[in-house]
Structures are given as structure tokens and as C-alpha cells.
Design a protein around this nucleic acid. Sequence first.
RNA 1: GGAGAGGUGGCUGAGCGGUUGAAGGCACCGGUUUCGAAAACCGGCAUUGGGGAAACUCAAUCGGGGGUUCGAAUCCCCCCCUCUCCGCCA
Length: 453
Amino acid sequence: MPDGGATYSSPTPPSSCLPPLGKPARAMIDLAALRKDPAFFRQAWAARGAAVDLDALLALDQQVRELKTGFETAKAEVNTASKAIAMAAKSGQDVHAAKDKARQLGDHAKAIDEQREALEKQLHDLLLHLPNPCLASVPVGKDSGDNKTVAEWGTKPTFSFAPKAHWDLGPALGIMDFDRAAKLSGSGFVVLRGAGAKLARALISWFLDVHTTAHGYTELAVPYLVQPGPMQGTGQLPKFGDQLYKCAHDELYLIPTAEVPVTNYHAGEILEAAQLPVKYTAHTPCFRREAGAAGIGTRGMTRVHQFDKVEIVWLTKPENSDADLLTLRGHAESLLQQLGLHYRVLELCTGDTGFSSAHTYDLEVWSAGTNSWLEVSSCSTFTDFQARRANLRYRPAAGEKPHFVHTINGSGLALPRCLIALLETYQQADGSVIVPPVLRSYLGGLERIGGKS
RNA sequence: GGAGAGGUGGCUGAGCGGUUGAAGGCACCGGUUUCGAAAACCGGCAUUGGGGAAACUCAAUCGGGGGUUCGAAUCCCCCCCUCUCCGCCA
């Protein structure tokens, strides 16, 4: 069984390019590995609470493979017959009988292939719903109650007055407008105005500047609308399509996170080992339907249909991905530290780890106004799960076969919840808000929002 | 939106019904030559799956899907993508 440093091996990269429209997504898990070590997958999925009938799966796989060999044998006969016809025709012989015979052979092969196709589709549909196995080091647990707090930074701010929530503070300062946002777009939207809008812009610029200078990322400005291929690549489609906004007249989706265009940026390519790790950062708005989330933490701008986020993404070598995840997490954490915001780090348990992720740390910032923790970043390694679907490979050395990279990403950071924490943490008795020093140069030297200036 | 041209191996680029899984070139690997390198020359070099200890062998793959045919990269239909020109608009 693999330890934390290695997942199942992936010796069989597929050769085709991006999954084209209409073609079922590539399997997220390696069937060859599944055959070889079913016990590993059995326990990995059990740990996640995923009900998987592995025996049925393997039996189906076995049938498919038998039909495949049956077809190949039959097809080989057809090919032999066809070649004989070509030769005979060339020398002027009568080929009518031979053609009839070949047609029969062809029909037989086709019949077998149709059976294979039906079963293989069944198999594929099953595979699509299997989550990425977690790393062996991930704590086993049922749900968010079993997540482990692995770090905590700073302390809860104290106040000589009753701290307000951002949905009171923001409108009172004239920097957030929920009512008019609803007039424009319905519930789940916000209009930032004046210093609020500028503060958001300052956060974005500052985040990007830190990542591109101190942390060594290359900034990308990417499309916000993408085709189905990239959505399949990172795992949003087909399973989570109901969370996406889709254009009515075009096969285009609004991205729910910059992860989609950024991770898929190199889809279908074979990178050189020397290029790795590839590190990108990008700011984009994120669009999420939040279907089914009505009523859960929907007040204010905690959970909205559109928000800004700076994402950080790595494409890295499999042997480095575990260590790289910690580095990436550190990059996200350093932002919170420089903002002086109290936060904690959770290591998600097997039951709470996202579908495509193998290991996730959540950064949660303290919301003083609501006495709760808010997730501002989810830092995950996807091992080769996304790379397999997006066909993201690298060549370990010249002349060697390409291998899948590992993908890692996290927010660095999500805007609304940072804004919330910032306003609530730095609010003053008079309702004004002190601007953290690192942001002041982005705000023309502004030190305080609201109050007497 | 209108008109046209295309999508072939790591890249480039021929092929347009039959020993074509696919010429040529580049890149890459091995060898000869050289003190060494370059150049030149010789050889090798797609992916996936099945069988085999191996040599090897069988099948599938020329954007995706379907059709015609004994046989399709080549012919027909649908879809996707890219490019060029015109129109429209920032």
C-alpha cells in the first residue's frame, strides 16, 4: 500500500488530446492500477464513505476485456480475408464468394463489438463517479466534524464594544450594497462601492504582487468562459454540472474558479521535466450557482454567486507534490499573516475531502462579527486525478515515456471572506475600519475607512 | 452573421479506396568518424490494449461520432475546433 509520499502508479497515459465535446470524460482512476491492487482502492473508498461495489466493477471490467479479445480475433480474420481479396482482385480472379464470406466475418465481429461497447459504457459510467483515493496519511473520518486542526495563527481580536457583522458594517459605511445588488441580479450578489470597491481591488493587486514577486508565480489573465473540455479536465463536469452557469446559445460555461482555465492551460501537452514545477497565479471572478445551498450561511457576502478570487496553481512532479502542497499552503497563509488576520488550518478528513482531491488543507479566517470561522482557501493536491483527465504530462528525461504530472491548487485568497474578516477584525467603536498597513499604498495611503478623517 | 480554407505521429508535412501505422524533413536515441565536439554517414524512434519469458504477434487509433464498402486517413452525413476575408461591434 502506498505511503503518504506516493499514490498508485500511473504507467499507462492515454494518448489522445483534450476530451472533445460529446466524448465521455476519461476515467479518473487508473483501471490497470485498480486491477492490480483492488484492496488499496477498496479501503480508500471505504475511508471516504463512498459506496463502491468493487467486485461488480472488476467483473464488468473482466467481461469487457474478454469481449475485446473476442472482437480482435474476429477482426483479424476479416482483415486477412480483405487482404486476400485485394490480391485476388489484382490478379483478375473472381472474388464474389470471398466477399460474401468476408461480409459474414465482418458481421460477426461487429456483433461482438456492440456487446463490448454497451458493457464498456456501463463500466465507464461507474468509474466517473469514483472519487480520488485520499493519501494514506489523511485522517480517516466521516464528515467535517472529524477534520483536524493542524495550526492556528494569531488570536481572536477583542473589543470594548459589541462587534458588528459585515452585513451591518458594510452598508453603514456605504461600501456594500446588498439591496440594489438584488435589484440587479437577485439574491446572492453584492455591489461594492467607494472604498469597498477599491479595497477589493487593492486586495487583488496585493495578492498578485506578493505571489509574482515573493513566491515566484507567473501571472495569467485567462478567459472566464470555457468549453466543456476544460470543465471535464478539472472535474467539474460531468458530475457537478448543476453548480455551473452555462450560456444559453453557446457551449460555454462561466468558470467557478480560476483553477479551470489555469490548470487546463497546458492540457494535452507534454512538459519537459526541467520546466516543472510550473507555478501560476490568476485573478478571476468566480461564478457559482450554489444549488442546494439556500439558507446555509447565505447572509451577507459569505456565500455569493459571483466573487473574486486569486488562485495559485502548481503542476509538479509526483515525487514532490506532497511537499509542494505545504509550500503552496504557506504562500496562502503568508497573506493572512501579513494582513494580521487570525486563522486556523484544518486538515480535512477522508470523509470531507473533495471529490477530486487526495489531500486538502482548509484555511479558515476568524469572523469576529459572526463568531465563526470562514473558509478563505482550500489547498489541495489532486495527485494525477486531474492530470489524467486533462492529459497533462511531462517527460521525466529525454527519451523516456511521458508521465502524468500532479496538480495542486489553492486560493490565495478568496476576496469576499477576506473582506469580511478584515472589516470585522479592524472595526472601531465608531463604526470605522482601520486599513491594514500592507494595503495602504494600494489605497492612496488611506488608513481608515469611515468615521472622522 | 456571410464566404472560404483547414484539423494527420514530439513538431513539421505528404498521402485522398487496397500489403499505408502512415513518405520526406526536424527533434530525439544508438553507432561509425574525431583528442573531443560539430558536420557527414549508417541504424533506430507513435500511442493504447490483448497474448508471449522473450524475439515477436494480433487489434484499435490520421479532430469527435455515424454511414457506404470485403477493405476508409482517403468517399458520404452530423458535430467540434482553428485560420483567412467581408459585415457588425467594443
